[in-house]
Design a protein around this nucleic acid. Structure first.
Lengths: 200, 200
DNA sequence: ATAAATACTGTATATAATTACAGTTATGAA
DNA sequence: TTCATAACTGTAATTATATACAGTATTTAT
């Protein structure tokens, strides 16, 4: 998101939520009423600011003519992750695909395009998109996205303690990965909450 | 769909398309303009009829206050298919999930909940939802939903001719299914265009 | 045969909604 | 210091929109 202020973020999220729950965007006065503005122009100003920052578009002369821009409505698909830096850095985003609330039981922060065959035994194939939630606490038994010394990998978490973490490939040709979090730099980027495969 | 007339279907689809492409529903006059009505009341009448038939809802006094009802906006998930009758018959619909245009490269007419392990070698597991398009012509190499004498099955189509159809399970423990379309009642219900798995 | 539903035209009006203009106050950057 | 941005209040006008009422013609159920 392009440096939205706190207030702008609140308003943007409200608009997003309204579209999702009502099926159409709010008007200036609905926004004003929600946030306690005494003038619809306060909402107008915010909309203009949000448009200027590229997160939404406004159709002139059109009631409820607010649309979220691709950038802000889509969920990023992460392809190859460059070493260092955050996984959601712009250079890692291959494309974005529309949000699909209600299909998966958990929220999706990003999709990761699967490389390799280390998880085929649980039906995760190369080029599948796995849906990742960043905020669910990782636990044993979950399929997690882990970063070990700047290398990103998808495995089943089978053991986690202060001194030992075991990541298991779900493919009999591969062996468990043993990590010592005290020695190695281990970061959990998220938990896999779903899978998407496109037969084209 | 609840016995919509041809015209009502046209108008309903237009509204659906507008919501999808614009992000907000059309007004009465936009509908009228599109269909050449000379009075916005023609659109109003149609909206009332569509509301009466339960495929959409109207928010009174609200501009663009048109929402598609759950029933009509969702995509059906087919669980167990009862023998005889169409696959999309009401009794087969386990639930509906929101439409997700833009995620898969083909349209989805329904999702089928996978039973059994006959397709595990291509990463299709029990309880996965496979996305089915009814209108793509089936061809060899595709994963298809076939109904053989009232039994519904998901397999790879490996041969198709007037006198012989071969359906291959993607699991080395199973053998090919050989069907003679002249003797057996064979219907292709659709082609698999995607897969959805929910890790909950 | 008759009523109800379908598919509109035509007119009119209240109100919903956008949006411009003129201000105020506060904050952070040049 | 001065200017731009942010975050509003207040007013007002144009236009966008919903929606009622009164018709007409055709088709479809009963």
């Amino acid at each position: 998101m392009k440096n939205l202020t706190k207030r702008q973020t609140e308003i943007f999220n409200y608009i997003k939520d309204e579209i999702e729950s009502n099926g159409y965007p709010p008007t200036r006065s609905e926004i004003s009423k929600t946030f306690g503005f005494k003038s619809p122009n306060a909402a107008e100003d915010h909309l203009k600011a949000l448009k200027k920052k590229g997160v939404l578009d406004l159709a002139a002369g059109t009631s409820r003519g607010i649309t979220l821009s691709n950038q802000s409505s889509g969920i990023p698909v992460i392809g190859l992750v460059s070493a260092g830096g955050p996984i959601l850095a712009e250079e890692n985003i291959e494309k974005t695909i529309p949000n699909n609330p209600g299909i998966l039981s958990h929220g999706v922060d990003f999709y990761l395009k699967v490389k390799g065959d280390s998880m085929v035994d649980v039906g995760i194939f190369e080029n599948d998109l796995i849906a990742i939630n960043k905020n669910i606490p990782v636990k044993t038994g979950s399929i997690v996205v882990a970063r070990i010394n700047d290398e990103v990998t998808v495995k089943t978490l089978t053991k986690i303690s202060d001194s030992q973490v075991i990541l298991r490939p779900e493919n009999s040709s591969y062996s468990d990965i043993n990590v010592n979090p005290k020695k190695d730099n281990l970061v959990f980027e998220g938990t896999c909450v779903g899978l998407l495969r496109d037969f084209s």
